[in-house]
Design a protein around this nucleic acid. Structure first.
Lengths: 178, 178, 178, 178
DNA sequence: AATGAATGAGGCTTCATTCAT
DNA sequence: GATGAATGAAGCCTCATTCAT
């Protein structure tokens, strides 16, 4: 799976061959089929493993009772920590978000995440901490902004550090706060 | 090229076969090779055509003498108009931004755009209209946010209208202004 | 046809495309089909034109009443003159001698030539001027030797001149004479 | 490789399709690519294998100290034995001698052979056993003659036997001897 | 469990040929 | 007569997958 991530990020799903994953992992092509039903099962396994890992990281001891400001910072900070610690994996998740080869389970995890986000936004809006805009708009705006900064970092135009993301966090908050 | 955009957006470069493009365009597979050297030449042609179109749209009568606020709104607004008028094409450009199959000419257009953006940011920062953060950070943040909203719209969770984008524009400005 | 010879010599029948012949000749691909039924008809036309030209050259005022020595020299000399004057064409004839794409007419010319040669050999053998070996053996030996020298000349290892061939002529005669 | 030889001899490099080689060999098309990088690698492998085999046969216990007459006979005799034992392979080697698809290694073997021949000729000329003509001329003449006889045999006009070649050997010697 | 040879479908591309202009 | 766009079959090759070892 480690070998697969690198290749999937670099060349996409269709551009990555199973033999190349195998040789990159130092095993024979056939071996992959002992552990995964096929290529699709492999991407889905990787996707679910890391999407889950990231979600878990974000949710861990989440300050459900904290202020909207604190919650926003927490989510952003934890995504930043994850992205800095596992850039390849974060890129992988982002890149394959909408692949037609993702199965039901993968899509379910994705929806869960979105639902959680929307809940948070609604709660904050109820407390008039956030702008009274469609929750999805605020969510997509913020996530997109985070992703943009990550892309800048991956392409070498920004340092891939917690600091970079935390500077952006302030911007993000000012964008969405009431 | 119209047929190609749809397929490239839907399935990616490697996931799109030349015969499928041909049949989608209502011609024989061989015909494509009268107009393009190969599959790579085709993506590059499409990319350059539309990236150029979008750049031209943004630059047209650009208020170089206007305020930072006005310039920001202008760029955002024009990107919005373009994205609403040509959603497939916008998605295509975003999706293939970093493809390893893009040639020098395609990358050159991309760099031009980035340079223009950085110039604008620097000028605005000189006038203390924007936060004193790395220009690239502000750029990637804003572009990412825009892209996030667009993604929300493409997935049907937001209406794909000028209004949606203009609501986000206000957030964007508050994110980056000093 | 001139363009075709160059390409057929360089890349063989199957390695030469009709469009390449056309562009080399400065006409459109379709034009070739006004003059030849197809690719096979083209090779055959070229083959027959030049095989015929060479035969005619050899036969012209042939010293039917001369000595075996004189006849041998005449044939060799005229082949040499032809090969020096039209190296591409000579190479073409040699190369395509046995192509499965040659039609009946082309094969007929070829057989005619062989028959003529065998007649000459038989007459010379009757006069005990040549070794009493199978006529075909003597023929193939001599033609092969000539071809060998030509090949050496085409590859640049020997000068492609009448002199080169006439030196070889003496060897050739000593090989076959009684 | 056995299947490939037959087809390459019959239809040439460009006229032979990889699938046809595969089906002739009783395997699937893809299988060929486990053993050879591609079609070119296949011809080169075949070429080198047999060119090397023939060279080895000729060189084996070569009478370096023998007379020019003996050396000439030895080379001719061994080529004859090889050609009679492996006619397809001999034809293959001759046919592809100058193919543009031959790689450096193949050309190297070829050059080695030529060098060896030239050395032999020079030594014999030093002993005044051969005509004082350009070594290449003598070589190309003799090899060409041999090839001519072989062609006659392959086309059925001469028996493909050691005897046929040994009759020609006498002619060959008389052609080149001083 | 692991291997890797084998398969054959399918992808990219070329090209002989046709035909409307 | 000439053109060259269009066609689609066929060629080279890759690759997901299977299976005997």
């Amino acid at each position: 799976m480690r070998a697969a991530i690198d290749l999937f990020v670099e060349r996409g799903f269709h551009g990555t061959s199973v033999p190349s994953v195998a040789s990159s992992a130092g095993v024979a092509a056939g071996t992959i089929y002992h552990y995964f039903e096929g290529k699709e099962a492999l991407v889905n396994a990787v996707f679910q493993r890391w999407k889950h890992a990231m979600s878990a990281e974000i949710m861990r001891d989440f300050p459900f009772e904290g202020s909207a400001r604190e919650q926003f910072r927490t989510v952003w900070e934890r995504m930043a920590d994850f992205a800095v610690a596992h850039p390849k994996e974060f890129a992988f998740i982002e890149l394959h978000q909408h692949g037609s080869y993702l199965d039901a389970a993968s899509r379910a995890i994705e929806n869960q995440t979105v639902d959680f986000g929307v809940q948070m936004v609604l709660r904050a809006q109820a407390g008039q901490a956030l702008k009274p805009l469609p929750p999805t708009l605020l969510m997509e705006f913020a996530i997109g902004a985070f992703r943009g900064v990550f892309r800048g970092a991956m392409s070498g135009r920004l340092p891939l550090t917690r600091e970079t993301f935390m500077l952006a966090e302030q911007c993000g908050w000012e964008a969405v706060r009431a």
